[in-house]
Write a protein that binds this DNA or RNA. Structure first.
Lengths: 140, 140
DNA sequence: TATTAATTGTTTCAAATGAAACTATTTTGT
DNA sequence: ACAAAATAGTTTCATTTGAAACAATTAATA
């Protein structure tokens, strides 16, 4: 077996290649970074949730979530509200500007992915989805 | 739109999951981090190459390569030699300690991969290799 | 109820990162 | 040949990162 074929290495190189392009694009186009993008997407799908919940959904660190939320509030894309049952927590929600931003960003993201995926056959796309699912089950 | 379906996101989560486990293991077991591991593998397969070449092969930043090479020389795993045709560049090579380290690290890495891959069928393994190759061709 | 443990989220600190500036050398173009 | 541009690698500096410590609050238990 060749070390060039070492799977974790190949995967990380591939993933890095893909993220780099995306990060630059979002920064240029919308002035948001990858952390912000992820939090925004989660809040678009799950209005009125806490930082803890966002951390769970995104698989991101709680420190990073805390900072990202602070930035997004400062950039005026989110509103903060006290949590009704827990004074330690806050509920976050996209405001009008946030929703407007997402209605621009999401089609853009999907177009990027479609450009990439259109170069795979239907069969290859299915295989890819299957393999990602399988790895996630294996790795817990 | 589901964040969880967005391919670049899935790939980066997957790749991060795999790397984190490996990183901790290598740090504990051999005292090397992921950058060092990558550079070592490249030098194992490609003796006597320059920092630039390593950067190309690894898709890592030239600053990071420069620092990693410096560390590996300090840890006495590599030798540096002037490049015969270009006084700006240096050639790097594993020394005896470096080769010895790699002869310990590589079986360990392969065992890790084998544990992972053994959970895939032959067909799934072939699909995985095919897809990684295809993405690399698409992304250049 | 009082005390301890657990939790939510923030801040601190040290390490990792990479863009930009830099040095030294080589290549290109006239 | 010579000046300008490009390249290899390093250093500087500002940003990003997350572990650990922290404050505030809630839950658990005696």
């Amino acid at each position: 077996m060749e070390l060039n074929d070492f799977l974790p290495y190949q995967l990380s190189v591939l993933s890095l290649k893909i993220s780099k392009g995306i990060a630059a694009h979002y920064q240029d186009q919308f002035g948001i970074n990858i952390s912000e993008w992820r939090v925004l997407v989660i809040l678009y799908k799950n209005p009125d949730i806490t930082a803890k919940k966002i951390a769970q959904l995104s698989e991101m660190d709680k420190v990073r979530i805390s900072r990202t939320l602070k930035t997004l509030v400062e950039k005026d894309y989110l509103t903060q509200q006290p949590h009704p049952l827990d004074a330690r927590a806050k509920n976050y929600e996209l405001n009008q500007r946030g929703k407007y931003l997402m209605r621009a960003v999401i089609p853009d993201a999907l177009r990027y992915e479609e450009d990439l995926m259109s170069q795979l056959s239907t069969e290859e796309r299915e295989q890819l989805q299957h393999l990602i699912g399988k790895f996630n089950r294996i790795l817990g």
